[in-house]
Design a protein around this nucleic acid. Structure first.
Lengths: 194, 194, 194, 194
DNA sequence: ACAGGCGGGACTACCCGTTAAT
DNA sequence: ATTAACGGGTAGTCCCGCCTGT
C-alpha cells in the first residue's frame, strides 16, 4: 500500500496529464482516494507546492533517468538513441499519444506562468540534453559519429524534435503521427554516422 | 479604427498568448478595451465561441497562408523552406520565444480538453503539412528532391520539429535555442537534396 | 428603497459593530438582504475594499460632521462641548453602550493589522481634534477659555477620554459607566473656563 | 528554561498583542515554539480555554498588582497616581504605543463576542477601580483630596481615560500622543487636591 | 449595439481540533 | 507527554454568463 503522500502525488500527476495543472482540482482528486482536504493541506500547503513536488519527485527522475545511461554507454551512441526512440514508439499507445508527454504538456502550460515550474522544467531539458551530448561526444572519440557536428546542439535538436513529435501526436490524436515523426528523426540520426 | 468585434478578437488573442486560453479572464480583457461585458457577450455567446473565432479568424489564416505559396512554387522547394525557416528565425525575438507559438500553445493546452479546438488545430496542421508535401512532391518531379523520401511524412516531420523548436525555446527562455534547433532542421533539409 | 450598494454598506457596517471587521462574514450578511455574492463582488472586489468604503462613506462623515460646527461656533465652546457630551449620553442606550463606538472598535481592532484602515482612522481622529482645537482657540480669543492651556493637546485629551468612555462602557456592559466617565470629563471641562 | 505550558501561554500572549485574539493562529505559534499541536491541545482543550488562561495568569495579575499598593499607601494618593502615570509614560516606547495596551485591546475585541472574556476583563477593571477608589477615599480622610468628589466615579474616570490614551496612541502610532493625553489627566488630577 | 447590475457556483486556502501511536 | 497524520467545515476570491434596460 502506498503511503498517503505518494498517493496524492500520483493521482494528481495523472489528473495533470488529462486537464493540465491549472485544470487539476486538487480537492476533487483526493476525494477520489477517500482522502480529505485536511490531509492534502497537511502535506502540501499550496497547489503550487504540490505541483513542484510532482515535477521534482515524479517527472524529473523519470526523464533524466531515461537518457542518463547514454553518458557511460560503450557502444555506438547512434544505435543507442535509435533503440531508445523505438522503445518510446513501442510504449506510446493510442491513448498515451492523446494525453501527450507530461513534460511537454507542463512546459507549454506553465513555463510562461510560473518561474518555479519553468526553472524545474528547464533543468530537466538541460540534463537530458547533457546526457545525449556526452554520449555523442564519446561517439565522436570512438569515430562512430561525424566530427563536424556540434554534440550539444545536435542533442538539443533531438530532444526538441522528440517533444515536437509528442505535441503533434496529441493534436492529431494518433500514434502513427508519432511514429512518422520518429522515423524522420531516425533518418536524421543516420546522417550523423561517420 | 477597428470595429468592436475585431478589437475583442485581437485583445483576447494577445491575452491567450500570455496566459493560455483558460487563463484568459474575460473581465480583464474587457476592462483593458474599455468596453463592457455586454458588448463581449453580444458578439460571442460563450467563451468557447470566442476561442473558436480566434482560431478560425486569426490563427488559421495566418498559419495556412504561410506555407500555401509553396504549393505553386516553381523553384527548389528545399531552398524555399530554408528561406521560410530563416524568416521565422528572424522574426523570433527574445520575447516572442518566451511567449511561444500561438498554434503550438493552443494545441498543447486545448487539444485534450475540447474537441472543437482539437479539430480546428488538427485541420491547420494538416493543411500546412499538405502544402509542404505538395511542394516536396513537385520538387521530386523536378529532380530537386530525392525520390526515396515520402513527401507527406517528411512534411509532418518538418512541421512537428518546427513546433518542437518553439516549445523548447519557450521553456529555455531564449531565442538561440530556437536557432539551434532550426539549424538542425536545415541540416536535415540538406540531406533531402538529390 | 436604498440601492444595492448602500444596502451592502449599511448591513456590513452593522455587522461590524457586532463582530468586528474580521468577524464579519460578508457573504452571510448580504444573504440576509437576499443579495448574492455576485452582487457583492460586483461592488467590492475584496473584503478590504468593502471595509475601506464603510470607513470612508459611513464612519468618517458621521464623526467629522459631529464636531465640525464647533469651528464656527460663536458662543462659549465649553458650553458647546458640554451640550455635545450630553447629546452623546442621551443617545447612548444600554444596547449602544454594549456595542461600543464604531470608530473606537475599529481603531483597536484594525489599526495594527492594516495600514489602510489605520491611516483612515487616524485622519478621522485628527479632524475631530482639529475642530475641537479651533473651537477652543476661538474661545481663548473671546476670553471664554483659559489662555494657559494648549488647545490642540486639550482637544486630544477630550477626544481620547471620550473614546475611553466608550471602551469602558462596552466591557462593563452598562450606560451608567459611560455617564460616570462623561461627568468626569465635564468636571475637567469646567476647569478650563476663565 | 520555561516549561511547555508557560511557553505556550507567553507566546500566545505576544501573538495576541500583534494580531488580536481572533488573529492568533495556533499553527503559527506552535511552529515558532517548535512544538506541535498535540502539545498545545494537551494543555488547552480549546483556543478559548487558552485565551482565558492568558487573561487569568498573565494579564489579570499584572494589572491588578499595578494599582493594588495604592490601597495601603500612607501618603497623598494624588502624588502616588501621578508617579504611576509617569511610570507608564516612561515604559511606553514607540513600539509599545503601537501595540496598545493588552487589556484594552482584549476588551474592545472580545467583550461583545464572548462572555467568559468579558466577565474576566470586567473584573480586572473593577479591581483596578476599587484600588484607586480606596486610595482616594483614604486621601479624603487625610484631607489630601477634596471631599466633594466621588472616589469611585473619579477612579473610573481615571482608569477609563488611561485606556483611552492607549487606544488613541495605538491609532496615531506615536507615544507623544500618549504623553499628551497623560498630561491632560495629570492636570485633572491636580484639580482634585484640597 | 451596447451598458452593467447581478446570479450562482466553484475552488483555493486556511484553520481548529481529533485521534492513533509512541 | 508528545507527535504527526488527518477530519471537516468555511471564508474569501473569482469568474462566466444572463438579463434588463436604453
Amino acid at each position: 500500500m502506498m503511503d498517503t503522500r505518494t498517493q496524492i502525488l500520483q493521482k494528481n500527476f495523472e489528473a495533470m496529464r488529462l486537464n493540465g495543472f491549472q485544470g487539476v482540482r486538487a480537492d476533487k482528486v483526493v476525494e477520489s482516494l477517500s482522502i480529505t482536504k485536511g490531509a492534502l493541506y497537511h502535506y502540501f500547503a499550496t497547489k503550487q507546492e504540490l505541483g513542484y513536488a510532482i515535477v521534482d519527485e515524479i517527472i524529473a527522475p523519470r526523464f533524466t533517468a531515461f537518457w542518463k545511461p547514454l553518458e557511460n554507454y560503450g557502444g555506438n551512441p547512434i544505435d543507442y538513441i535509435k533503440t531508445k526512440f523505438h522503445e518510446l514508439s513501442a510504449i506510446c499507445t493510442e491513448n498515451e499519444a492523446k494525453l501527450g508527454c507530461p513534460l511537454n504538456n507542463l512546459m507549454q502550460e506553465m513555463s510562461p506562468l510560473d518561474d518555479g515550474f519553468r526553472e524545474r522544467l528547464q533543468s530537466i531539458i538541460t540534463q537530458m540534453q547533457q546526457s545525449v551530448a556526452i554520449g555523442l561526444k564519446n561517439g565522436q572519440k570512438k569515430k562512430f559519429v561525424r566530427k563536424d557536428i556540434d554534440p550539444t546542439k545536435t542533442a538539443l535538436f533531438l530532444i526538441s524534435s522528440l517533444e515536437g513529435a509528442y505535441g503533434i501526436a496529441k493534436t492529431l490524436q494518433n500514434r502513427t503521427a508519432f511514429e512518422t515523426v520518429m522515423s524522420g528523426l531516425v533518418d536524421y540520426l543516420e546522417t550523423l554516422r561517420t
